[in-house]
Design a protein around this nucleic acid. Sequence first.
DNA 1: TCAATGTCAACGAACGATCGTTTCAAATAA
DNA 2: TTATTTGAAACGATCGTTCGTTGACATTGA
Lengths: 214, 214
Amino acid sequence: MSKASPHRRVAAEKPRLPELPARRGAYAVVLDAALRLFAERGYGGTSVRDIATVAEVQPATLYAHFPSKAHVLAELVRIGHEVHQQRFREALLEVQPAPRLQLAAMVRAHVSMHADYPMLAVVANAELHALPAELAAPALQLRRESEQLLLEIVERGVRLGEFSVAQPWLAVAAIGSMGLRVANWYTPDLGMSADAVADAYVEFAWRIVGAKPQ
Amino acid sequence: MSKASPHRRVAAEKPRLPELPARRGAYAVVLDAALRLFAERGYGGTSVRDIATVAEVQPATLYAHFPSKAHVLAELVRIGHEVHQQRFREALLEVQPAPRLQLAAMVRAHVSMHADYPMLAVVANAELHALPAELAAPALQLRRESEQLLLEIVERGVRLGEFSVAQPWLAVAAIGSMGLRVANWYTPDLGMSADAVADAYVEFAWRIVGAKPQ
DNA sequence: TCAATGTCAACGAACGATCGTTTCAAATAA
DNA sequence: TTATTTGAAACGATCGTTCGTTGACATTGA
C-alpha cells in the first residue's frame, strides 16, 4: 500500500525523535521515515519499500540495521516509552510531596510529552498491538507502572482529604485518556504552546479528582 | 498476516453490531468477522482471506456483497457513526434545555455508545484513516457536527453562568477524548455496568467545565 | 609516498509467500 | 426454468526478506 491518506491521524507534519546515540547514517533516516509512515498509515499499512523510499535507501539497507520490520516498530515504541518514563521520573523528582502538586507534575509531563513528540506517541500507543508479545512486553510493563503511580497519587490525595472522587481508578483512566489524544490534534500552528495545553489539562485533572483549592 | 496479537486493542471479546436490515447470510457473517479482525489487528493487518476464514466463507463470497475490502471497512465505519449520531439525537430530543443536563445527556450517549459497541467504536475511530477520502468524508462530517454541537452547549453554559471554563474547545476535546478511550478497556466482566461508567464520566465532564451545583 | 589489503555499509536483483481481486462452473433458491 | 449465491482455482502485484556484489575508505607494508 503506497497511497497517503488525506485525513490525517496526526496533525504534526514532521517526525520528531529525541537525541539518540547513533543518530547518523542509514539507521537514523530509516527510523525517521518509519516514524512518519507508521504514524500516518499504521504499521500494517506501511511496507518496507515505503520506508526505504522515504528514507532514500534500498530495502536491503534497512536489514543491515534492523533484524526485521517489527524490530523497527519495536525500537520506536521503546524510544517513545523511554521518553515518557523519563519525563515522569523528572517530574516526580522535582515536585513537593503534596498530592495536588504531584498530580499536576504528572499530568504536565504526560500532556507535554504527547504534544512535543506527537508521532512518537501515536506510534507507541496505536501500533503497540502490532508487535509480537515479547517485543511489546517492556512497553506494557512501563505503562502499568505509570498508571499505578498515578493511581497511588490520587488515592493518597483522597486519603489526605485533598481530593474528592468516588472511583479513583476511573479518574486516572479519564485523565490518562484525555492526555493521550493530544498527540492526535496538537500542532504548534494552533498558536498555543505545548505548555499552555498542559496547563489547561492540569486544571482539568484537578477538577476531575475534586482537588480542594490549594 | 494471520497471527493474533496477545495484547488486545479492545477488551471486549465478541463483535457486536446493532440490528440491521439484511443481517442474514454471508453479508452479516462477513461484517461480523471484519469487525472483530479490524478491531483486533487493524485494517492493514487483516487480509481478505483472514476475514473469509473467520466468516467461514470463501474469499470470493465477500466480493459478492462488497465491491472491495475498503468498502467493508467503510460500511463498519458508517454503521458506527450512525449508531453514535442516533444516540446523540435521542439524547438531545429528550433533555431539558439546561446546559448542565444537555452536557450530561451528550456525555452519557457518547460514553455508553463506546461501552456498548466497543469494537465498532474502535474501528470507526482508529481505522478511519485507512479509508480513501471519498469513503471517509461522511463520517468526518458527522464527527465535526457532533463536536460543534458539544462546543455550543459548553459555550452556552459559560454564557449563562452555569459553567466556568477558560477554553471551552479544550474542555470539549478533553471530554471527547476520555469517552473515546472507554471502548478500549470496557467490558461487562469488570463488574461495572456501562451506565455506571457513563454516570462517572458525566460527573467528570461537569467538573471539567466547572458546572455549578445545579 | 603509494599501491595492496581489509572492512563494511549500501546496492540491484531476486526469492517464495501472500496480497486484493477475478473468473467461471457448480450448487442452491425462486 | 431463471436468478442468485457459493466454491475452487488462479491472476498479476506486492509483500517481507535474502543474496551476492560493489564501492568508498581506513590500514597496512614497503
